[in-house]
Write a protein that binds this DNA or RNA. Structure first.
Lengths: 256, 256
DNA sequence: GAGTTCAGCTGGTCAGACCAGTGGACTAGG
DNA sequence: CCTAGTCCACTGGTCTGACCAGCTGAACTC
């Protein structure tokens, strides 16, 4: 027999396609084609059973996958059926969080990432900010000052609001999401290590001063300086939590 | 009756928690706690039924959700049970692609993010590289030069290898993954728009030249210059795919 | 000892049932 | 006529029990 071996021929690994996956694919395709739009409703599960000619278990598994991906939402008793949701960054954030929480990730890496993201957001904000947005950022500074009179939690909250405001001005939702996620993870990691000294009034005042410098550089339109100050601040604030040998990458992000 | 209204009291909207969600939560918690690690196996579905005291349908819905999130993988007939997977960028990319497809994420945002990530990786690499890693990066340059003699796909592949090598040197897996994901999404988005001119020999040579400059700056340890060149290259290469009004943020990332 | 067979498990799918909740239609009251 | 209340068909969530094809490892054969 002429058994001939084609050169360079490569086969792809094949895994069985399960019924519920085909349902997910069909619905997602209908969505990208525009046949299905956010706000619309899917037929009821029992109706889908007949349309897809599968059992309800299979339909439900497909719906659970779609639901966990933020595509649809099912509510018990709703006679209109599952709802097609508007696109949201929620699931993206979930995945980002998962990525950031994988244990092979050191605190040093996370903080480096935070310095990069925050610096980039500030650099973009320096260029793209409108006068109104500048006012907005200055107002978050005022809120921080006022929060100092309360407790550390209030101050921390105001700090978050500041960084959120800056990230919004960057007009890049990817940056916003990454910033938000990595900040959350970092704060979660050092939450138990945070010393009593960290919430002293002096440190809060110093932090406020640093933030004010950033805003000043943004006002001047000097993105490079603004980003540099911000990264320096983050380093000063977090470096003590990082083992000395791992601080080198962080310093590499400061002195350029 | 002393019906008293607490001031400032806010209630959170509450939605019913379904049984399969609690299972997902428990398994994910076990994962972040480290009680469950990639490579390990989950008990079989029927065993989970008894442990969670629910029906198999419920267990399966939980497993489908975990599976779609890239946490586990079930194989029919496998006596060892569902496998805990190592973290993969697949689901992350899927979510990012989904958002990008519906213009929730513009190409401009993605490219800006790529410029930031790639620039940061190169900046870190300039400081952290060992002599061996420098050689490694230079070898990927050689591979790029050789690939020019083949076709554009080979060149593109070699280009990817270069950026991967740089990202590895940055020793920050967060950067590596983000870089890989956003690069994949960007390439996927412009795949159908890519002009014939893009794979001309002249452009490939020019691209190679730019990459060589980056490596040169890395060798010199000038992270700032290296990152700047890299961002400029990305801008030159991708700007034509971005509508003119949206190029402003990209420029803000170059001239500092 | 090497190869084969086979039984017991696995996950994938199906069918049918029950329940609590939803919301629209219908009805009684203004 | 409009409103307020009742009611019921139908929804999704869960459970039970069943069948099938596939994988594995141990028993079995040569």
């Amino acid at each position: 027999m002429g058994a001939e071996m084609a050169k360079g021929l490569r086969f792809q690994p094949v895994q069985p396609v399960r019924a519920y996956q085909r349902i997910v694919e069909q619905i997602e395709e209908a969505l990208v084609r525009g046949d299905l739009a956010p706000g619309q409703r899917l037929p009821s599960e029992r109706e889908l059973v007949t349309q897809f000619a599968v059992s309800r278990s299979t339909v439900r598994e497909a719906l659970r996958v779609l639901e966990s991906n933020g595509v649809v939402r099912s509510r018990p008793g709703d006679p209109n059926g599952p709802e097609i949701l508007p696109f949201s960054a929620g699931p993206l954030r979930k995945q980002m969080t998962r990525l950031a929480r994988v244990d092979e990730l050191t605190l040093s890496e996370l903080i480096a990432f935070r310095m990069i993201m925050d610096g980039a957001a500030i650099q973009l904000a320096s260029r793209l900010r409108t006068p109104e947005q500048l006012v907005e950022m200055e107002q978050t500074l005022v809120a921080m000052r006022e929060a100092i009179e309360e407790d550390f939690d209030a101050f921390s909250e105001a700090d978050v609001a500041f960084h959120d405001a800056v990230a919004r001005v960057s007009r890049n939702s990817l940056i916003q999401t990454c910033n938000e996620v990595v900040r959350g993870v970092v704060l979660g990691l050092i939450a138990d290590k945070v010393t009593h000294a960290a919430n002293s009034r002096a440190l809060m005042l110093e932090s406020l001063q640093h933030h004010a410098e950033v805003v000043e550089a943004i006002r001047a339109g000097d993105g490079h300086a603004a980003a540099r100050i911000a990264r320096q601040n983050l380093y000063d604030y977090y470096a003590s939590y990082v083992p000395a040998p791992e601080r080198e990458p962080l310093r590499a992000l400061i002195d350029d």
